[in-house]
Design a binder for these strands. Structure first.
Lengths: 219, 219
DNA sequence: ATATGTGAACATTTTCACAGCT
DNA sequence: AGCTGTGAAAATGTTCACATAT
């Protein structure tokens, strides 16, 4: 199993979410075409994406919703739960903490760190805020798999360096800066400013537009 | 000027942010190589991206930081300010409201709408929360350019339909669902669950990995 | 009859490499 | 001498189209 692009992985997430909804609605079976339409892609794309990991459909019939969900969860590593730490208990950080959806998907925020002595020792959405100085020790003792960085841009690289040195291999960054991590560490960025600026670009350049349609339908 | 990919626009945002920092530090001039390194891309990529819009550098010398900033701001449509409305004053919505960074970049959240009667009439970070029923009227009277959707997944498509019908042509979606918009409307998604699942995938599949390095350095 | 899985065609994006300014 | 701007090449990602299975 090689050659899996980031866009494929992103789509798998989308497929999974869709399928979970359909399962709730009692749908049992589904074609690549039906799934594609609901995810804003093409049937061929769906089949290609899935074919990278095995063969999950039945010819002439389509995919079993339940089986495909199981397969996707396995591919995405969602059969286990992941232990997540949040660094930075500011506005965004706390909002994420309260975002119950993460928990539902298998991600438990079990530790929070902040530099502000006024917050340390308090609880946010039930989780104890620990001192920044306890970061390395806490990551270790809580067996953290993934760190969410929600500190101001200036502090982000320093936090990441410490987190990586402590052995964490997956980081989700909300700070609006480019972070450097060594090979072997997975880094994903959520940069709202970039998305807003893409909208600004689209608005400023509407009229004769660039690519095919005019709808950069995003993912 | 044709054929500008989403990834190019994303990188332009990054370049701009970097350049702004450098300008503050007093840097006057810079090569494509230097910019590339700080943005995690290549010099050729930087030059290609910029060349789609004109010629901004001086051969043998590099780019003037100030001039390139001006050019990028113009390209991205950031020479004006944009009027933004937030729909959904829940946790994420309010966190975004408080996120001063948007304002700095030229995006003013000037209206907030929520369905919860308990919130209507109150203020959040100084902005009055309006009733959901006033949505169309408010978008119009406040001359809203961009709408941020921060409502639960179930309500998101309905909100988008109303917003589009009201003439808004740019939407930033935080709800974890796939939204449909007609051609001519720009839609960007911020989906934290997708990013977390990409990390889960990376962790679950470390060892012999797919692509080149192991660092899907994200953007 | 229907819908998958996939090699081959196509399209897009990235990288290379170098001519041409300064 | 140094660094941009850009065609051409390489790599990557998407779509087509069809043989194959139920």
């Amino acid at each position: 199993m090689r050659k899996v692009s980031e866009s494929t992985v992103g789509r798998l997430s989308l497929y999974l979410r869709l399928l979970s909804e359909l399962e709730t609605d009692g749908v049992q079976t589904l074609s690549s075409e039906a799934l594609a339409q609901r995810c804003g892609t093409t049937a061929a794309q769906v089949r290609k994406d899935l074919s990278l990991f095995g063969t999950f459909g039945k010819r002439g019939l389509g995919y079993s919703v339940a089986e495909l969900i199981a397969a996707l969860r396995s591919i995405l590593g969602l059969e286990r739960r992941w232990r997540v730490a949040l660094v930075g208990a500011g506005r965004i950080g706390v909002a994420l903490l309260g975002y119950q959806d993460f928990r539902t998907q298998g991600f438990d925020i079990v530790a929070v760190f902040d530099r502000d002595a006024g917050k340390v020792g308090q609880r946010r959405h039930g989780v104890l805020v620990r001192a920044d100085a306890e970061l390395e020790q806490g990551l270790e003792s809580e067996s953290i798999d993934i760190v969410i960085v929600a500190v101001p841009g200036e502090s982000a690289q320093a936090v990441v360096d410490r987190v990586v040195a402590a052995g964490v291999r997956a980081i989700l960054n909300f700070a609006p800066v480019k972070l450097n991590v060594p090979a072997g560490v997975a880094l994903k960025n959520v940069n709202m400013a970039v998305e807003l600026e893409a909208l600004s670009y689209a608005l400023a350049n509407s009229g004769r537009r660039s690519r095919r349609g005019a709808t950069p339908a995003g993912r």
